[in-house]
């Protein structure tokens, strides 16, 4: 009964048609391969546009996702990259690097269903090198 009722609860969808000028990819000339990896592995939770999976239509999964996305965006929103000060960009880059190095991101609960989001060792190396270079250029 409760399960039926909660199906009527709507959620705010995290969707946007446009890529803002402040986006990470716009501000930095990101190579296509890295751009693609970041979009598939990170942007669902770290941008204003989520490519929703089928189970997002079912409660309570939708709430769970909404929560995760909000938390992800609070932590890092690639769409708002240009709005961060250099100091914060530096901090964000440092965190991106260590999260990937330590296999904390993308989350296991996410890659469990999104197999295409799993980063190979090569993906990790390329992304980390890129982020490190970007970080050095800011210092």
């Amino acid at each position: 009964m409760a399960l039926i009722v909660i199906q009527f609860f709507p959620i705010t969808l995290n969707e946007s048609d446009t890529v803002p000028q402040s986006d990470f990819m716009v501000e930095n000339q990101v190579p296509a391969t890295i751009k693609n990896r970041l979009q598939v592995s990170c942007y669902d939770c770290h941008s204003n546009n989520t490519d929703y999976p089928w189970y997002s239509k079912i409660q309570p999964a939708a709430w769970y996702l909404e929560d995760h996305i909000q938390e992800g965006k609070d932590e890092l929103n690639f769409n708002e990259w240009a709005e961060y000060s250099d100091r914060r960009k530096n901090s964000k880059l440092r965190s991106i690097i260590s999260q990937i190095e330590e296999d904390k991101m993308p989350l296991d609960s996410y890659t469990l269903i999104h197999k295409d989001a799993i980063l190979s060792d090569e993906d990790k190396r390329v992304i980390i090198d890129y982020m490190k270079a970007l970080k050095d250029s800011l210092e």
């Binding site: 009527f8 709507p10 705010t12 995290n14 609070d74 708002e80 709005e83």
Partner: peptide, 17 residues
Amino acid sequence: IMVLTVSCKDGNKNEPA
């Protein structure tokens, strides 16, 4: 739905940094 619509307005999606 009404409760959620009201409460969602407070949770601004694109909160400035």
